[in-house]
Design a protein around this nucleic acid. Sequence first.
DNA 1: TTATCATATGAACAAATGAACATATGTTAT
DNA 2: ATAACATATGTTCATTTGTTCATATGATAA
Lengths: 110, 110
Amino acid sequence: MKTHDHSKLLSDVSGQMPADEVLAELSELFSVFGDSTRIKILWALFEREMCVCAIAELLKMTQSAISHQLKLLRHAKLVSSRREGKTVYYFLADDHVRSIIGQGMEHISE
Amino acid sequence: MKTHDHSKLLSDVSGQMPADEVLAELSELFSVFGDSTRIKILWALFEREMCVCAIAELLKMTQSAISHQLKLLRHAKLVSSRREGKTVYYFLADDHVRSIIGQGMEHISE
DNA sequence: TTATCATATGAACAAATGAACATATGTTAT
DNA sequence: ATAACATATGTTCATTTGTTCATATGATAA
C-alpha cells in the first residue's frame, strides 16, 4: 500500500486532534446513546423522574434489563437517582442529554 | 413482578414518546458516533476534506478498515464524497456533526 | 424475627460489531 | 491492451453487547 504524499496535511490535522483517551471517552459517551432501549429511557425521563418498575412497564421489558441499562446511563452521568423507601427514582442528570438528542433528531429529520 | 400503580404516569409519558421507528433511527445515528475510529475520522474532517489513504495513514489503520467505516458514515449521511481521478475525497456532510460532537465534548469536560 | 416489594448484580448465551485479509472495481498512464 | 494506484467489498474471526434467568441486597411492614 504505497500511497501518494500527505505529509503536510497529516501534520496539520494531527495537530488539531484531541488525545486518544479523550476521543475514546467521547465515543464511549455516544455509544451509550446508541441503543434504542437507552434512548427510550432517556426520552421517558424528559417528562419527569420515574422509578425503575415504571420504566420497565412503559417499555414492556423486564426490571432486570432496565436496571442494567440504568447502570450504564448512571456511569455515563446521563442520569442520577434518589431513593425513597423501596423505590428508586431516576432523572436526567443535566441538559446535555436534551441537546444531544435534540441535535440527533434534527439530523434524521431531513 | 407485581408492581405498584403507575397508570397515570404511563399514559402521560407514552403520549410524548416518538414512534419506535424514529427512536430506533435515532439510536442508530448515535451508534455511528459510538466508535473511536469513526470519531477520529469525523474529527479529522473538521479541518478539511481528506482522501481515504490520508485518513488511513493518519489513524495508522488499513485502507480497508477506513473504507468500511466511511461506508457507515456515508449511509448515516454524516459524510459525503467526491471523486477526483483515482482519489476519493471525503468531507463532512453538514454541521450537525460538529454540534453533536461539540455537545458530547461539553458533557465529558465536567 | 419473617414476609414482601423494589432494585441490583452475576453468569450464561445469542446477536451484533470492528478489524484483517484477500480480492474486486474503478481510474489513469504507458 | 497491461500495469500501477486508489478505493470498495466479501469473508472470517475475535470481541463486545443486550437480554434473560437466578439470586442477592435493601427497605418496609407485620
